[in-house]
């Protein structure tokens, strides 16, 4: 479906995407997870031919990119990070415009517009100007416009970055409905809960693919164990534990701390407990299942430390 080979893109000295190899299977929601500036948008733009790769190439839906990008454009739907329909046009006018651009006409145009309006609950908004829509309504309109021509592949660049949690849930339900109808979806996000809902996931960090696989696989194969520490002196716990080189990360959540311990340590709970009791701190320590966020922290920790955002 999508195959990227050593895809690289530089902007001056900055390597936005670095030798990316990628396989996206058909009929799935494939997620790109990464912090801002990790190369998610650039990758999506490279895959649809909006940007030229500095090195490497990609094959998308059987077309070489960027050479055959124009042929590809008929088969894909693309949703930009920023709302990019026309604010001074009504919902129905925007949809008609995009439908005509994709070559729909006559009864097929009317049928498809009726279908997407129903599918994305746009009927009551038909006569509204796009600029008057709420964030969630805009997302629905943008998704409706991107799917009018029934593309085989949808590329969504952080589609939910500007909407509330309930709207995000609705949006994802709509995505799964599309996948059921056979669409493949490539979606970038920086939300863990969204990433967890993808069939497969690629974690990008500073332009490098640092992990990929199904979310459950990623959590199962994580290179650490997770201990939660409940204490009354979390700051002190933080100080004590961060001295240990086997401890990869400590995250405070209220009075609890989530401690990632290297797999090289066979008894992680004991190790944490002994370090704390040695300093006279009473704490309730127990091992828990790793979450996707833990995976994310572990695979991106080297560069995070380099950025000084540990």
């Amino acid at each position: 479906m999508i195959e990227a080979r050593d895809l690289t893109r530089r902007f001056g000295d900055l390597v936005a995407v670095n030798r990316l190899n990628l396989q996206v299977p058909r009929g799935q929601v494939y997620g790109f997870l990464g912090p801002n500036g990790s190369g998610k948008s650039t990758t999506i733009r490279l895959l649809c031919g909006l940007l030229l790769p500095s090195e490497g190439s990609a094959r998308v839906l059987g077309h070489e990119v960027p050479a055959e990008a124009e042929l590809l454009k008929r088969k894909i739907g693309y949703m930009t990070q920023r709302f990019s329909l026309y604010g001074d046009m009504r919902v129905i006018e925007n949809l008609r415009f995009i439908a005509r651009i994709y070559g729909l006409s006559g009864s097929r145009l009317r049928t498809r517009i009726d279908q997407v309006m129903q599918q994305f609950r746009l009927e009551p908004l038909e006569r509204q100007f796009a600029r008057e829509l709420s964030g969630g309504q805009r997302q629905r309109l943008a998704l409706a416009a991107a799917t009018l021509h029934q593309p085989e592949l949808l590329l969504l660049d952080e589609p939910t970055s500007a909407v509330d949690p309930q709207t995000r849930r609705d949006f994802w339900d709509a995505l799964f409905a599309l996948v059921e109808d056979g669409t493949t979806i490539l979606v970038s996000t920086h939300y863990m809960d969204e990433a967890e809902r993808c069939h497969r996931l690629a974690i990008l960090d500073q332009g490098v693919l640092v992990a990929d696989g199904a979310p459950v696989e990623l959590m199962a194969s994580i290179d650490c164990r997770v201990v939660t520490v409940e204490s009354e002196r979390p700051r002190q716990v933080q100080q004590l534990l961060s001295a240990d080189s086997r401890i990869l990360s400590i995250t405070q959540l209220g009075s609890r701390q989530r401690v990632l311990v290297s797999r090289a340590v066979t008894e992680p709970v004991e190790r944490v407990e002994s370090a704390l009791t040695g300093a006279g701190i009473n704490a309730d320590c127990r091992e828990v299942e790793p979450s996707l966020e833990d995976v994310f922290v572990v695979v991106t920790r080297h560069s995070a430390a380099g950025r000084g955002e540990g």
Partner: peptide, 13 residues
């Protein structure tokens, strides 16, 4: 400026 062009150039136009 409005970002519309990024959408337009991704269509067959």
């Amino acid at each position: 400026e409005g970002g519309n062009l990024e959408l337009l150039i991704n269509t067959p136009v």
